[in-house]
Each structure stands twice: as structure tokens, then as C-alpha cells.
């Protein structure tokens, strides 16, 4: 069936299967930043924005996104680079595979929380798993990026 979406500020009409998930749809249209890693809504890697809110695209049906505004990291490259510069200065991207989802959620948090505490940051991002870094470096990077102590 056909769905109409605004992907990264561009209106598109795509054919999708009824049981197709958004992560697969986005990847099949070249948005390769979107990663899948758990299939059970546990890891946060597939995080994209639907109507500017973080959503797990591995468990969102593409048809559910009909008529909505979808943003992937490709659509916020300037902000993503600003944060990535801080993240990589800490070395806390490591393998990088979880970065797109993590970065999207950090950018969403920045818009939502004002001057968050460590606890609030950790709580907000807790659904973004990372097996490489142990999270400490990511916390340092997020705090530097947000300009909080």
C-alpha cells in the first residue's frame, strides 16, 4: 500500500507492505543510518523521530507513520555533527553502531530537558544500549555538549 511521509523535510510517497516496519522502509530508501539490533524494542539503536519525538523504528509499522513527519540523523546532520564532535573527542563512540539512535535521542533530550542532572540524563538515555563504552564517556560527552556540570 502507499503511504505519504515527510522524511527529513521532504515529502515522499512510498509503497510499503502492510507488515513492513519503519526501520526496514527507511533503510530500503537509502537512509542507512538506521540500525536494527534487537527486534524487541530493547536497545534503542533504531531510534528516529516521528513528529519530533524519539520512536523505535524497529517496532513501528510503516503504515503507522502515514502522514507523519519522520526525521533520521541524515536530516539533522549539522546538530548531529556538533554532538558527534564532542562524543568522538571523548572516544566514546567506539564501534559507532549504536551512535545514530543514541545521537537522535541526545538531540531529542536537548530540546526537552533544561539543565538536566546526571540522573535525569541517565534516565532519559537509558533505553540506548551500548556494549562498548560502559557509558561513562558518553555521559561526559553529553554533559559537555549540554554545557552542564
Amino acid at each position: 500500500m502507499q503511504i505519504t511521509l515527510t522524511i527529513n523535510d521532504k515529502l515522499v510517497i512510498w509503497d510499503v507492505e502492510k507488515d513492513e516496519i519503519l526501520a526496514d522502509t527507511l533503510r530500503s530508501h537509502g537512509l542507512l543510518s538506521v540500525k536494527k539490533a534487537c527486534e524487541t524494542s530493547c536497545c534503542g539503536l533504531c531510534t528516529v523521530w516521528v513528529e519530533d519525538k524519539s520512536v523505535l523504528s524497529c517496532t513501528t509499522l510503516s503504515v503507522r507513520a502515514h502522514g507523519k513527519k519522520i526525521t533520521t540523523i541524515e536530516g539533522v546532520s549539522k546538530d548531529a555533527e556538533d554532538f558527534a564532535r564532542v562524543l568522538t573527542a571523548e572516544g566514546s563512540e567506539q564501534c559507532g553502531f549504536c551512535s545514530p539512535g543514541f545521537v537522535m535521542n541526545v538531540l531529542a533530550m536537548k530540546k526537552e530537558l533544561v539543565n538536566p542532572s546526571d540522573k535525569e540524563i541517565i534516565h532519559y538515555l537509558t533505553g540506548n544500549l551500548c556494549r562498548c563504552t560502559g557509558y561513562m564517556g558518553q555521559l561526559r560527552a553529553v554533559k559537555t555538549y549540554l554545557g552542564v556540570q
Partner: peptide
């Protein structure tokens, strides 16, 4: 020196550089 990884920016911003990509 604590130098940034040479592939850091690409992988931190979701560039298509992994096997499936």
C-alpha cells in the same frame, strides 16, 4: 595524546560504512 579516532565522525553520525550498508 587523546586524539579522536580517524573514523570517529563518520561512525558517530551514521554514515553507511558497515557490512550491511
Amino acid at each position: 595524546h587523546g586524539i579522536r579516532k580517524i573514523d570517529g565522525m563518520a561512525i558517530a553520525t551514521g554514515k553507511p560504512v558497515y557490512t550491511l550498508d
